[in-house]
Write a protein that binds this DNA or RNA. Structure first.
Lengths: 181, 181, 181, 181
DNA sequence: AATGAATGAGACTTCATTCAT
DNA sequence: CATGAATGAAGTCTCATTCAT
């Protein structure tokens, strides 16, 4: 799995031969196929792992009784920090989505929509109670801000000047101020 | 070219056989190779076309004598509208970047950095004169907002409830208010 | 033609695209095909040119009234010098023979056999009159000595220490002393 | 390998499709590529096999304490007999040399030069002690005589009037008498 | 006489996957 | 559990040659 993620992130799913993954993992192709029925299964596993955690933590925050603005801030922070923590996974996730088989793709999309909708609901709640501006459709706002997060893997470097926490804070700040009425 | 873009956008670069492009374009593979020495060259052409236009228009706006906030607003609007106008190109652009050969990749990256730096300079100018908040690194703000733009192709649908102009206006609004001190 | 010979000698007949020959000659493929119906025709032309000259000169010597030993010496000298003079042609000649179409191959082979037989007759004449040793089949001797000549192109370099005339003299000397009773 | 050698000898390396080799060997192309990474590797293997044996046997003879003339006689005999024993290999060897990739070509060339130099040293030794004539450069003599050997494959036929041993003896005789002072 | 776009067959090679051992 | 040889389909690209202009 680790080997697969690293290689997928570096060269892309299609461009990575199964043999190479097996070699990098120190096993034979046969052995690999003993555990994963398909090359795609390796990819699916990446999706399962990432989505599970992020969803759970997001829901926990959303269900908490923090004020709305702090909820949103915490959610953004979390998704940024966890994305950076598993940067390769994130790169693969957003880079190889279109290569998934239709069935899996639909599954993942459904799961993401769930995530999206929950956050959208939070924003709409804020719009109703006046915490957030109302002249922007909530769904567009969600797409906007998560779009930014999804591209993190393309420019963030662990050795760069910004720590994961700093990026997380800045992202959350930008999101919140953009939504301030 | 059109055929290639459509197919690349739908199935991905690696997953699209040259034969299929040729068929879609109504020519033979041989004829295709008469004009494009390599499958990659088709991809490169997409990059050249997109970058050229966007860069030119951005510079024109940046060089104009609009107030800073209006400049930024116009730039975001333009990039959103042109991205939506050529949505397939955009999808291919951001989806297949990692499949480019190192040489081309570096070229494209350089061009994008130029774009990025120019916008960054605008924001820094605004930060110095107090138009924009200073507690966020300009470069991070640029990555943040263009990250959002880059993911447009993944969720925007021309038949959806929002017109290109509306998305453009909303995106620009979000960017500006997020940067308001 | 010159371009073709040079390229065939350097890269081999099969490995040289017609396009490259045309480029090197400063014409288009179309123009080339206007003069040579087939790629093979270019090759055939090389054979025609080389064989014609060598055969004529050999016959002239053989028909002269020099003593036998001097005839053989002159023939070997001539073939060595002319081979070196057109080294590229010679390389192509011996390197690409097996790629000729059966018909052409048979033609060339027939011509060569004529050459071979004439020289063989000279040697046999010498064997009968006691000038040359008789314990070696004349035909084998011919193959032996011309075999050596045919490989000239593989090691001789014009910038090397030996001039064409020196090589010619040495080769002829070796041949003659090997045949001395 | 056997299938490859036969086909390369008959039609040439470039003119023999991998598919045909596989068919002749009764395997699939895939299976072939499981053992040989490249078509060229098949060719390289021919070179390795031929050179190894000939070099070893030549050195054994050169290191023996036979008189000089007998050493040379034995070396020529051996190279002729082994060439005839594996005639197809020899044909391929001398016919396809120029198609090897530069790296391999240099390797083979180096090995051959070693062979050449060793024989040259023997002749020079004979020239110093008066066994061989001194008016011919040793290196040229070596090229001359091995040139003859290299062309064996082009005319020798197992069903012809001469046995391998006869050819070997004659070749060795010719070489020796040509070098007699 | 010349162009150069176009063809179509075929070349080498790769690779996900299977399966006997 | 694991191996690794083998498959077979497909993929990218090349190239001699033709032909309308």
């Amino acid at each position: 799995m680790r080997a697969a993620i690293t290689l997928f992130a570096r060269k892309g799913f299609d461009a990575t031969p199964v043999r190479e993954i097996a070699d990098a993992a120190g096993v034979t192709t046969g052995a690999l196929y003993h555990y994963f029925a398909t090359k795609e299964d390796l990819l699916v596993e990446v999706y399962r792992q990432m989505q599970g955690g992020q969803r759970l933590r997001m829901e926990a925050i959303a269900d908490s009784d923090l004020p709305l603005r702090e909820k949103l801030h915490a959610i953004i922070s979390d998704v940024v920090e966890s994305t950076i923590a598993d940067l390769d996974e994130a790169v693969v996730f957003f880079q190889s989505f279109h290569l998934l088989s239709p069935r899996v793709r639909e599954m993942v999309r459904g799961e993401r929509r769930g995530y999206h909708d929950r956050v959208k609901a939070l924003i709409e709640e804020g719009q109703r109670e006046g915490t957030f501006r109302s002249d922007v459709p909530a769904t567009l706002a969600v797409s906007y801000h998560f779009g930014a997060v999804h591209r993190l893997g393309l420019w963030y470097h662990p050795d760069g000047p910004l720590s994961a926490e700093e990026v997380a804070r800045h992202f959350a700040d930008l999101t919140l101020s953009s939504l301030t009425p």
